[in-house]
Simulated scan of single mutants.
Amino acid sequence: MNKTDSIARRILGWKLNRWDRWFDFENGVFIHESEFQPEHNLDHAMKIVQKLEEFGYHYTTDGVSMVRFNDIQASGDTLPKAIINAAYSIIERHANIHTPNIWNQLC
């Protein structure tokens, strides 16, 4: 599972429907992997930011290559890549915690 797939499933709450697409239950639509490229498209990356803000994370950036969600900071070659790296860091941080409340909040 790559970073984009992990973020789609654990943060956005999308379910893997086939090897190349997810299903977004909130909107009732299928999303093909070619239609969601947050590491290359700032609008797609901002969907992740919006969802994390709904979960209570505060987003700040230097506008170029550094992102912070509360106390989690990450960088990347571009702003979308920095967002992906920070979001994935959130997933990694909570991967070892086995409380349903955290996964209910993130999914």
Rank of each mutant, 00 (worst) to 15 (best):
F25Y: 08
Y59A: 04
S75F: 01
N96G: 08
H94F: 14
F25M: 13
H40D: 15
L42P: 05
H98S: 11
F25G: 12
I102Q: 10
M66V: 14
H40R: 14
W103I: 12
I102S: 03
I72V: 15
Y59F: 15
M46P: 04
F23E: 12
E39A: 12
Y59I: 12
E92F: 03
M66H: 14
Q37T: 14
A74C: 09
F69A: 05
A45G: 11
H98Y: 01
K51H: 04
T99G: 10
Y88K: 03
Y59G: 05
A82C: 06
H40L: 13
V49P: 06
T61Y: 08
R93T: 13
H32W: 09
Y88T: 02
A45R: 05
G28R: 05
G56F: 07
H44R: 00
W103D: 13
Q50T: 15
Q50G: 11
D77R: 07
E92Q: 13
E33V: 11
H58P: 09
V67K: 01
R93L: 14
G28T: 01
I31S: 12
N96M: 08
S75E: 11
L106C: 09
F69E: 05
N70C: 04
Q73D: 02
M66L: 14
I97M: 10
K51F: 00
R93H: 12
N70I: 08
P38R: 07
H98I: 03
E39F: 03
N96D: 08
F25T: 14
P80A: 04
D43R: 06
T60A: 05
I84R: 06
M66I: 14
R68F: 02
H58W: 05
H58L: 07
I102A: 07
N27F: 08
T99R: 06
Y88C: 08
V67F: 02
E92N: 09
T78L: 00
K47V: 12
I31V: 15
H32N: 13
D62F: 04
